[in-house]
Design a protein around this nucleic acid. Structure first.
Lengths: 345, 345
DNA sequence: GTGCTCGATTAAAACGTTTCAAAGGAGCGA
DNA sequence: TCGCTCCTTTGAAACGTTTTAATCGAGCAC
């Protein structure tokens, strides 16, 4: 077989080629594709045979150029490496499938530049809608996309205004649940581990923690803040070092981490330093990713309804794209505490 | 503001609209877009102003209809929840960016049906190339895609023939490395934990393990097979139960797991059952995902060059799409053992 | 046989872009 | 002033599909 023979005989057969092969007009081929009931059975069969023989593949570009809209939904993820976001993506697949749309995932990797590039490309593709967990939910870039006409829903972040749909989880409540649980377990010296607090999520979770603490009328100074630079396993390990280094009389007996990655890092470092979990240090994470339950000491964590988050966001973006009466909504879900060994002993 | 006012004034401005607004012909607008150097500075400026005022967004459908190719690469992942695959995807981003292409991720979720649906949609979109970790690398569906003209590279799976490009890692060698390491550590009763062996990867890793065992002239029966139904954390836990239940005289002193998810499940269950890792049970995983290093007892694991895997696959698919002389290649990389506490004590 | 209706098929236009040959016009040397 | 070149701009065609109005032919009632 010569190398040339490897290439397809015809670059790609078009509707016109199929029409010629089947001896009908091009309009008829289109009818077979779109309203098969209006085509006589014999003709239809002949056309279908021609399609198979030629290896006809519908050209989606031409299709959506003509129709003005594509059959695609996209989710721009903040971090493809964090299982939380892939779970959200999974939740969006249902509504996408129902609407016969493909769901494409893009990874912004926490970089505004990449995010902007993806958004631009998606707008150019005229996707039906965009779901996005943005680097900055208040960025005007997002407003611009909406103004130019592409439906867009913010996922897992909230906007301070109501010009864009968003779907999020009540992080203040989540923080409260975590700390109330620790208080119930008898802890009176607790650390909040996380940062930077410029991230809305982190600030909210801390706020919730503080409110729970205040409500229990515990001394303000006994809820300490162990700051991290990022929400990663490495940052958790590093925080663990600092905590383990404290004199046991000053050391908190429990840590509430801003997410599970930090909690896992903290758990690892605590174990390494010889601190028993939960006896000497109880740990609560956030997100309840699969690996939280899979840790050697299963992690107590605040679960977000991430599947529901993705599903609702997809439904919202579909409504925005198809319903002229659409009104932007900001939805909030409630998190739930899942207690496991890392706080129960 | 009336609800109607929320909708964009003009659905979307086209090149023609821009031309009219700037008082030039439509060809000139196109020149501004594609060969700005051939347009007089004043004209260019006027056109660019018009574009901004109208919120002009290039229509990618029309563009790729005209040019016959799109600016998109896609990676169809087997399981978006497994960090291994998202890491591979990250590796592909470099070449994609260099070629000024967007990389879209699709999740087949291990289901042939979803995979086929994604492939069909991608063909219709006339993507430049497809990277795929397929449910079944020998499925004729893949050949059909290639024959119809879309460049396609199989990632992390090998084909038995050479009609398609593939990029994989030598799993037999990986299995050998893992077991040689355990033998070096003095283990003489080892379990291979994984399954189903119908998956090529699993069979290869087991084969490598057996060869290392044979080369060391250890009794065949002392390398046991603990079968699992899938490569998940849950399956690992379940296998852990079975191993922990064995009498200590018959129990293997080390386990080589077919992937890290199983290893993490096994580690968790062993800990729960009071088996000390690595003293009573050493554990080796496979893939070296981030969570392997982050476990309470950091896992020894066989690292695959997953970033390199993704990068090479992307380069290969780009070559196939742009180089008429392209010859299909099946590349194999070498894995590497990363020794950590779970085998070193 | 004429005139209708109805189902099947067709021809032509349109979507928004890129490209290419050709036209327009300015500047310049002779 | 003529003729030439060179730079800029233009007009028209093409990509593959969908859609709409129009055409065709057969069957049927009168």
């Amino acid at each position: 077989m010569s190398p040339a023979a490897r290439r397809p005989a015809s670059p790609t057969a078009s509707v016109k080629d199929v029409a010629a092969a089947a001896g009908v007009s091009l309009g008829t081929v289109s009818n077979v594709l779109n309203r098969p009931d209006r085509v006589a059975a014999g003709t239809r069969e002949r056309v279908e045979r021609a399609m198979n023989e030629l290896g006809f593949v519908r050209n989606e570009s031409a299709r959506s150029l003509r129709s003005g809209r594509s059959r695609t939904l996209a989710y721009v993820m903040l971090d493809a490496g964090n299982p939380f976001f892939t779970d959200v993506a999974r939740g969006s697949e249902g509504p996408a499938d129902d609407g016969d749309l493909s769901l494409f995932l893009c990874n912004s990797d926490n970089r505004a530049g990449r995010e902007a590039a993806h958004l631009e490309h998606l707008e150019q593709q005229r996707v039906q809608g965009i779901l996005i967990t943005p680097v900055d939910p208040d960025s005007p870039t997002l407003d611009a996309v909406v103004e130019r006409g592409t439906p867009l829903v913010i996922v897992d972040r909230t906007r301070t205004d109501d010009r864009i749909c968003s779907v999020a989880v009540d992080d203040v409540l989540g923080g409260r649940l975590a700390v109330e649980h620790l208080i119930d377990q008898g802890h009176t010296r607790v650390a909040f581990v996380g940062g930077p607090t410029s991230i809305g999520q982190v600030a909210d979770r801390l706020e919730g923690a503080r409110r729970a603490w205040a409500d229990a009328e515990l001394p303000e100074d006994d809820l300490t803040l162990v700051h991290t630079d990022s929400l990663t396993v490495a940052a958790g390990r590093e925080a663990g070092e600092r905590i383990a280094g404290l004199a046991s009389t000053r050391r908190p007996t429990a840590a509430f981490c801003a997410n599970d990655l930090i909690a896992l890092g903290l758990l690892q470092q605590a174990t390494r330093a010889g601190l028993a979990v939960p006896d000497q240090l109880a740990i609560v994470g956030y997100d309840d990713i699969e690996f939280a339950a899979a840790a050697a000491v299963p992690l107590t964590s605040v679960r977000q309804p991430r599947h529901e988050l993705g599903r609702t966001a997809a439904l919202l973006v579909l409504d925005e794209s198809s319903n002229p009466q659409h009104v932007h909504q900001q939805l909030t879900f409630e998190p739930e505490l899942v207690a496991r060994t890392s706080t129960l002993g």
